[in-house]
């Protein structure tokens, strides 16, 4: 860099150039195209910005991926602690013992059933009804997103069957209905919300 202090001979400073890079604001824009000192200053700042971007990329890579153990342990804790939901009773062998499943663990189980189908991802999931009283009728409501091109009705049916089987095996809930709603259709390689297709919403319900 040519200047020894922060000010160039032309009277402008690196601080001004630094602000110009961030905001595009400069007192005398025409000057920038003519002044060799300002140009070389800008070039140095731009090289630094590019190097800075490189450092960010390198640090992100060094930070690991979102699927690594560190993030998994953070998320496990988060799931357990922040939204455990209601306690769902399980019949004890010894009267007086209190055995329960958290609503959160069952919702997660339902979501994983949806996530395991090809081209399908789970969204909102609710257990409607008094889950804390044994025998109360419960309606499961789950939203799914399906990648465009996958058969919606077929996916919904398969998911309902899967959820019914899973809940029968892993809970003692009295499931009255399973309501699967296709809430979103996703474009493969989804670039952003604006480019997404229209989102049809179909809901279907049946007794399991």
């Amino acid at each position: 860099m040519s200047a020894s202090g922060d000010n160039f001979e032309c009277g402008h400073s690196l601080e001004e150039l630094s602000i110009y890079l961030d905001t595009g604001e400069f007192s005398d824009p025409g000057h920038l195209t003519e002044c060799p000192e300002c140009q070389s200053g800008l070039a140095a700042l731009r090289r630094l910005a590019a190097l800075g971007d490189e450092l960010v990329s390198a640090d992100i890579a060094a930070a690991g991926s979102g699927t690594d153990d560190w993030m998994q342990s953070i998320l496990d804790n988060l799931r357990l602690e922040l939204r455990p939901g209601r306690d769902i009773p399980v019949r004890p062998d010894t009267p007086g013992d209190i055995l329960t499943e958290t609503e959160g663990s069952i919702s997660a189980l339902i979501r994983s059933a949806a996530d395991s189908l090809p081209g399908t991802a789970a969204g909102k999931c609710r257990l409607d009804g008094d889950v804390s009283t044994p025998g109360s009728p419960i309606t499961v409501r789950v939203d799914v997103a399906v990648v465009f091109g996958h058969p919606l009705e077929e996916r919904a049916d398969a998911l309902r069957r899967g959820i019914a089987a899973t809940l029968a095996r892993h809970t003692e809930l009295n499931i009255a209905a399973i309501d699967v709603t296709v809430a979103d259709v996703l474009e493969p390689g989804f670039p952003g919300p604006a480019a997404g297709p229209a989102r049809p919403s179909e809901s279907s319900e049946e007794k399991p």
Binding site: D76, R79, L80, P84, D87, V90, T94, G96, D97, I98, L99, T100, E101, T102, G104, S105, I106, A108, L109, S112, H170
Partner: peptide, 11 residues
Amino acid sequence: ATVRVQLVQVR
């Protein structure tokens, strides 16, 4: 004894 068992994760 009183025994309480809470299932917080099924997977």
